[in-house]
């Protein structure tokens, strides 16, 4: 390799280092400043800074791998929930904690915070303790990546038992292979659930008085009904200031965007 080529490569590497450093610095700096503001009980400033940090993390995410940085974004969202809670906006806090849990579903501290925030907001717990809630919680305990790995890794015992069945063919191997197939299908359920809910794009009604559902995105349109606070709906579309939802009975309705919180961020 000639000296000129080596020089050019070193220059490109140096530029890449500087550019990546320039990206990394603002986010960590914003985070540090937000923590300082939070400690100084300036919760509005802390929220603004963490919001900026979240935007930066999300921006980096758009350029990188689809799920890179989910944990960090979940942390920033949980901190934003704390800021809302300290400003006595428990509905907003619950929404941030729930958004955070979607990215980091097994984080016990955030779940406790969510339960507390929902209780303070006067909403029923997200996990009602019945079979449906427990099942939903168990199925959503994995991120999509984890669920995919689980589905793949659970194939290993099946491979072994199928090999045994092919080479030995005894009833015991057949039963073991069937059991492993059942186990694999069971292990696939989180992946199935993740795929099924991948495009649900839920929003949470955060206005304590509920969200007025209208057939068209204008204040003068007739109010069809009021979506209760703390309930989840599927987002279909957005216009400035208005969000279109799949409302009760499957009808699409428009609600003011300020009354709902998009959990997919």
């Amino acid at each position: 390799m000639s000296a000129v080529k080596r020089l050019v490569l070193q220059w490109i590497a140096l530029c890449a280092l500087l550019v990546s450093g320039a990206h990394a610095a603002p986010q960590s700096e914003l985070d540090a400043r937000a923590t300082g503001a939070y400690r100084a009980e300036d919760y509005a400033a802390a929220a603004a800074l963490w919001n900026d940090a979240l935007d930066a993390a999300t921006g980096a995410l758009d350029q990188g791998a689809p799920h890179a940085g989910d944990g960090e974004r979940a942390r920033l969202m949980a901190n934003l929930g704390n800021c809302a809670a300290r400003q006595d906006d428990w509905a907003q806090a619950a929404a941030w904690f729930e958004a955070s849990l979607r990215l980091r579903p097994r984080d016990a501290e955030t779940r406790d915070k969510l339960d507390f925030a929902r209780s303070e907001a006067g909403w029923s717990p997200l996990d009602r303790g019945d079979l449906a809630s427990t099942t939903e919680r168990a199925l959503s305990a994995f991120t999509e990546d984890e669920a995919r790995w689980l589905a793949l890794v659970a194939l290993l015992p099946l491979v072994v038992t199928l090999l045994g069945e092919a080479l030995r063919g005894s009833r015991a191997w057949r039963r073991a292979a069937l059991a492993c197939a059942a186990l694999w299908l069971f292990a696939c359920t989180p992946c199935i659930y993740a795929a099924w809910t991948a495009d649900s794009d839920p929003v949470l009604v955060t206005n304590p008085n509920g969200a007025a559902a209208r057939p068209e995105p204008r204040e003068s349109a007739e109010r069809l009904e009021r979506l209760p606070a703390g309930t989840h709906w599927k987002r279909l579309d957005e216009l400035p200031g208005w969000t279109r939802l799949r409302g009760p009975d499957g009808r699409s309705v428009w609600v003011p965007s300020r009354d709902v919180f998009a959990l997919e961020r």
Binding site: S28, D31, A65, G71, N79, A93, D112, E146, R148, W149
Partner: peptide, 22 residues
């Protein structure tokens, strides 16, 4: 409510296998 989390999160785990792989 608990305190904020000040320590940045570590890198995420490996990306999950693709649809084709699954």
């Amino acid at each position: 409510i608990g305190d904020v989390q000040t320590e940045p999160e570590g890198p995420d785990g490996p990306a999950g296998p693709s649809d084709t792989t699954l």
